[in-house]
């Protein structure tokens, strides 16, 4: 593996800190027990898109690990791994987007939204429940229902919040030779 740049490392650390704070203190209940509207996945989608799959994977892994940790209920590995998967997969699918060069409009937005929806459905509809069954032997119908609800909620959250963040960030990056003082 190629050496990680310092910026990726810092982005991972700050990304994980943000993921933790949003997930731990800003959860908005969605109505179904154990499933919150998790704003942090919008953030994760954004981090993965801007800084790539490795930062996405690690920010999801570390951030979610810390959330579980801080609740003291032990580490719920199946979901931690799923968060890491979301970061990795989003980073891979969106690697052709150039948000960090200030480009994010039209087709890019559609691509980002579609890939977030796919990633979340694979993650929560498949990866998380299967891991739950393998690791914790939980009943299949419970975990699949929980998974599908999460997939729905998280993909909406990511689509809205992630897109807003990417658009805002892309705007902050001035294009080459674009800054001119006006009278």
């Amino acid at each position: 593996m190629k050496k990680l740049s310092v910026k990726t490392i810092v982005a991972t650390g700050i990304g994980a800190a943000l993921f933790f704070v949003l997930g731990r203190f800003v959860a908005i209940p969605s109505g179904v027990p154990d499933t919150n509207i998790s704003v942090q996945y919008g953030l994760l989608g954004f981090i993965a898109t801007v800084f790539g799959p490795v930062a996405g994977l690690l920010a999801g892994l570390i951030g979610h690990f810390f959330i579980d940790f801080s609740f003291g209920w032990g580490v719920w590995w199946s979901w931690v791994i799923t968060s890491a998967f979301v970061g990795l997969a989003t980073g891979l699918i969106t690697s052709k987007l150039k948000v960090d060069e200030g480009e994010f409009a039209g087709k890019d937005i559609v691509w980002f939204i579609i890939s977030s929806v796919i990633v979340h459905f694979v993650a929560w509809g498949l990866v998380a429940p299967v891991l739950d069954i393998l690791i914790y032997s939980e009943p299949a119908n419970k975990v699949f229902l929980q998974g599908l609800v999460s997939a729905g909620v998280n993909s909406i959250t990511t689509a809205i919040v992630g897109t807003l963040l990417c658009v805002a960030y892309a705007h902050t990056i001035p294009k080459k030779g674009s800054l001119k003082e006006e009278d």
């Binding site: 050496k3 490392i9 810092v10 991972t12 650390g13 700050i14 800190a17 570390i62």
Partner: peptide, 22 residues
Amino acid sequence: KYSVAYSVSLALRYIPDVQRQY
């Protein structure tokens, strides 16, 4: 790897800051 380990350390370092800022 130390780079990954350091991002864990950075996360711990900046969690209180991010919280206050939020």
